[in-house]
């Protein structure tokens, strides 16, 4: 079974660390579906959220290989527990005539935001879970998506109750 796994990687915020991580994936033939990275509260470290697919044994190998990198502090497979994930997407759609109100309607329904508008296009910002993003993309597809930018997923483990 090739399951999707969300792997959270805490790394030192140093030059070359992203190259080490991405190089390990490409060098060993592992797949990166998405990768989001930015500094943590402590600017000495960065957090990477990597979405990858593979059989159990491959995922185990990916996690071990990540842990083996000297600049990697901590690796968690969030998929093994409860977590919250979000992705932000910018979508530019063709929006002329009656399609314009359809787009704006969908924007409301999905609690998205219009961030840019011209006579014939609307650009909206939407964030949410993968299923929400998939849903809005599916509904906007017939309208005509001109451009699409995704940040890649970020995810955080749910806090334990009482902690």
């Amino acid at each position: 079974m090739e399951d999707s796994h969300v792997i959270s990687v805490l790394v030192e915020n140093k030059p070359g660390v992203l190259a080490r991580v991405s190089g390990m994936f490409s060098g060993r033939g592992f797949n990166i579906h998405s990768l989001a990275v930015a500094p943590t509260l402590d600017p000495e470290y960065s957090r990477m959220t990597i979405v990858t697919q593979g059989k159990e044994q491959i995922i185990e190998q990916i996690i071990k290989q990540l842990r083996k990198l000297v600049n990697v502090v901590k690796v968690q497979d969030l998929t093994r527990g409860d977590y919250v994930d979000r992705e932000m997407v910018l979508i530019r759609v063709r929006a002329t005539g009656p399609k314009r109100s359809e787009v704006l309607n969908l924007t409301d329904i999905f609690r998205a935001k219009v961030v840019d508008v011209t006579h014939d296009t609307v650009t909206i910002e939407v964030s949410g879970t993968q299923s929400k993003i998939d849903a809005i993309l599916e509904l906007l597809a017939p309208v005509g998506i001109l451009d699409l930018l995704r940040t890649g997923m970020v995810a955080i483990q749910r806090a334990r109750k009482g902690s």
Binding site: P15, G16, A19, R20, G23, M24, G27, V70
Partner: peptide
Amino acid sequence: IVGITRPCTKHNHL
């Protein structure tokens, strides 16, 4: 050389 040898060293530094 740090870029070139990243995959063939245990670790490297500039």
